[in-house]
Each structure stands twice: as C-alpha cells, then as structure tokens.
Design a protein around this nucleic acid. Structure first.
Length: 269
DNA sequence: ATCCTGCCCTGTAAGC
DNA sequence: TGCTTACAGGGCAGGA
C-alpha cells in the first residue's frame, strides 16, 4: 500500500528516466479511472514531483499527469514496444517515450487512478485539493499541527488518514507514528506537546522508510525491487505480539474500517 | 462541516 | 481437493 515513502521512492527513481522525454504514444485500460492517461500524448515531461501520495508529472503546455497508486499500483520501465503487447493482464496504462522506453502503470486491484489537469488545478481531485501540509515542510511546526486539530472531533488516527492534517500518511505509518509518539489512536483531542511529538514521530518514521526504499508487505515494488522497511515495523501488523518497549501485548481493533494496532500501556488514554 | 456506510477491486489465506 | 468466506484498505459518493 504505497504511502508517502513509497511514492517518494518511486519519484526519485523515475524522475531522471522521464524528464525531458516526450510521450510518443499512450494507451490505457478502458475504465474512466485510467482513460485520461492518453491525453498527454505528444507532450514532454518537464518535472516529476509529489504531493502526499500523489505523483505529479509536469508536462509542457501547462498540463500535469496525476497518478495515484491506490493499493496495488506500480510504475515500471519497460523496454518493449507497447500498444501491441501487454506486460500482463494488470497493465492499466502506458506511455511510450521518444527514447524507446515505456512507462507502465500496473494495478491489480484498480484502486489507483490517473488524471490529466491544467497545472495546479486540483478542483476535480478532492483529496489533493484539500491536502494538508507536507510533513517535511520547514514551515510546519508542532503548534501548527496542534492548531489544525483544534475543533476537530474525529479520532486522531482518522484525522491522520484523512490527508488533511498532514499529507501522505496511510495506515502503516499512522500506526507507527502514533506508537512512537505514545499517543492513543482513539483520542479525539491532543495536547500541544502531543502534537509536537506526533509531528516528530511522523517525520522519523517517514524519513527512515524513505531511506529503506519503502515498506514491501504485499504488492508494493519500487523501480528496483522491494523496499526493506517492513523489517523495522514496531507496531503495524503486530497485534497480539509483545511491545518492543514494555512487552505488553499489542492490541488491535478496527477504527474507521482500518485495522489499528497500538500498545495499551505505552499509548494509554 | 462532520459523521457514517458502502462501494470499488482481486489475490491470498483460512475454514469447512 | 475444492469451494466459500474473510481480509487487505485509500479515496470518494451519498445520505443523515
């Protein structure tokens, strides 16, 4: 499940391979989720950026190709000629470049989506339009995070997953960050010191995951293979196992349709 | 504005 | 062995 570290890893690996390349041909699965991939045919990639979990490929003519990987989305470079042949049945879109290589979007479960928009116009992509601050933004402070939670009544775990509090955090890194920050996921309000700890923890878990090329549990692959952060998870997926800090049995329950794991002692309410 | 439910998707693993 | 069911869950529509 690609979150910020996985998307950032892919961005760094893909950037130099597509920048200044022109899309000579493109194709897509017929689903409206992917159909607009074809709209950048003839355009040249000028930059590859990221906002939260969204990849943004800037093109000439003030257009942007937006790619969200969903749950099982992958981007890879293929040498073969596309259009006549498919990588496999899960190929959802492809862009052939003028250097002879092809960028392929593969997505088994089709939770991903692709859009082409005028530069900076995210009005048709609500989560991107309403995206919270980037976690590594130098201007972002603990007080800013705290003030963004003020007046909110949703659980802090839910607020993290919403993308509006801080950009790019999904279920894995939400559980990891709340564990590191010693904050109970069900709290509906957090203190200033807790907000500072939460921001510090988010930055820690995300930066460590980026250094390790992401977390490969099931489907995620970067352009060079698997990440290695899955070997360093302290909380996510460890329900029923002992806490590394205090040896209490980690607890799991569903919060907002997402499995949530926490330590009942380190993260007491 | 917030909250809640259900839907989209398919491979994998568990259960009978 | 073969079939059924549960589960993984980000984003979003729609109704309260």
């Amino acid at each position: 499940m690609p979150e910020l570290p996985e998307v950032e890893t892919i961005r760094r690996q893909l950037r130099s391979k597509i920048i200044n390349q022109t899309v000579v041909r493109a194709g897509s699965h017929e689903s409206p989720k992917f159909l607009s991939a074809r709209e950048i045919t003839g355009r040249r990639f000028t930059e590859l950026t990221r906002r939260g979990k969204y990849l943004i490929a800037e093109c000439d003519g003030h257009k942007e190709l937006i790619v969200h990987l969903g749950m099982t989305g992958q981007l890879l470079i293929d040498r073969g000629e596309q259009g006549s042949t498919m990588l496999d049945q899960y190929q959802r879109a492809w862009w052939s470049l003028d250097n002879g290589k092809t960028v392929v979007f593969r997505d088994v479960r089709r939770f991903g989506r692709i859009a082409v928009v005028d530069k900076g116009d995210y009005s048709q992509i609500p989560t991107l339009r309403d995206m919270g601050p980037e976690p590594f933004s130098p201007e972002l402070t603990g007080d800013e995070v705290w003030s963004r939670t003020r007046g909110r009544t949703r659980r802090i775990k839910t607020q993290l997953l919403s993308q509006r509090l801080i950009a790019g955090v999904g279920n894995i890194y939400a559980d990891e960050a709340l564990f590191i920050a010693r904050i109970n996921p069900s709290l509906r309000a957090i203190s200033r010191p807790q907000a500072q700890r939460l921001l510090d923890a988010v930055r820690t878990v995300l930066s460590e995951a980026i250094e390790r090329g992401g977390t490969t549990l099931r489907d995620y692959r970067n352009l060079e293979g698997e990440g290695s952060n899955q070997h360093h998870l302290k909380c996510y997926g460890r329900g029923g196992q002992p806490c590394f800090v205090c040896a209490s049995t980690l607890r799991s329950r569903i919060i907002d349709a997402r499995t949530t794991t926490w330590c009942p002692r380190c993260q007491a309410r």
